[in-house]
Amino acid sequence: MAATRALAHEHRVAVVAVRHGLNLAACWCARLLQLAVGLTAAGDPPDGVMAPAAPERACGVSAAVLPHPDRPGVPLVLLAGRAASSLHCVGRPLA
């Protein structure tokens, strides 16, 4: 991911990546687009998308969002219950 980010910066191009890991995406992506059932649920920098309500809205799972201990300005998402052992969710209709 570091090499991809460096190449994108060097050549002034955008990189589109599909990530199901919320924390990995928050660490490496300047902007996130969260989809729920094919619709845009949120699109902002990671700290705007990774609000506690976002996983609930998109996937129906509860989450705690904390400041990342090693990366200032990056959120750390902790999924609750069974979702904590899953790397992704399939989504559900927006409320």
Score class of each variant (00 low, 15 high):
Asn23Ala: 00
Ser62Val: 04
Ala2Val: 12
Ala26Tyr: 00
Arg12Ala: 15
Ala41Thr: 13
Glu56Cys: 12
Arg82Asp: 15
Val37Ala: 13
His9Phe: 01
Gly73Thr: 02
Leu24Thr: 14
Ala80Met: 03
His20Lys: 01
Val77Glu: 01
Cys59Ser: 09
Pro72Trp: 01
Ala95Phe: 01
Val37Ile: 02
Pro67Glu: 06
Arg57Phe: 07
Ala84Pro: 07
Pro69Trp: 02
Thr40Trp: 07
Ala14Asp: 10
Cys29Phe: 02
Pro67Lys: 00
Ala30Ser: 13
Arg92Glu: 01
Val15His: 07
Gly48Trp: 11
Pro93Tyr: 05
Ala80Phe: 01
Val77Asp: 04
Ala80Asp: 05
Ala64Lys: 09
Ala54Asp: 13
Gly38Ser: 09
Pro55Ile: 10
Ala17Ile: 15
Val65Leu: 12
Asp47Ala: 15
Asp44Leu: 09
Val15Met: 14
His68Met: 05
Gly38Arg: 08
Ala41Asp: 12
Thr40Leu: 14
Val18His: 03
Gly21Asn: 15
Glu56Ile: 02
Gly21Phe: 02
Met1Cys: 10
Asp70Glu: 13
Leu76Asp: 00
Asn23Cys: 03
Val49Asp: 07
Arg19Leu: 11
Ala17Asp: 10
Cys59Gly: 09
Ser85Phe: 02
Cys59Gln: 11
Arg92Ser: 02
Pro46Gly: 09
Ala3Asp: 11
Pro93Phe: 06
Val18Gly: 06
Gly81Ala: 08
Leu32Glu: 04
Gly43Glu: 13
Ala42Gln: 11
Glu56Trp: 14
Pro93Ala: 12
Ala14Arg: 12
Cys89Pro: 09
Leu22Tyr: 03
Glu56Ala: 15
Ser62Thr: 08
Thr40Glu: 11
Arg82Lys: 14
Arg57Ser: 08
Gly91His: 08
Ser62Asp: 13
Gly48Lys: 12
His68Asn: 08
Thr4Gln: 05
Asp44Ser: 12
Cys59Asp: 13
Cys59Leu: 11
Leu35Ser: 09
Thr4Trp: 09
Ala25Val: 06
Leu76Lys: 00
Arg92Val: 01
Ala54Arg: 15
Ala83Ser: 13
Gly91Trp: 04
Leu78Asn: 01
Leu33Asn: 05
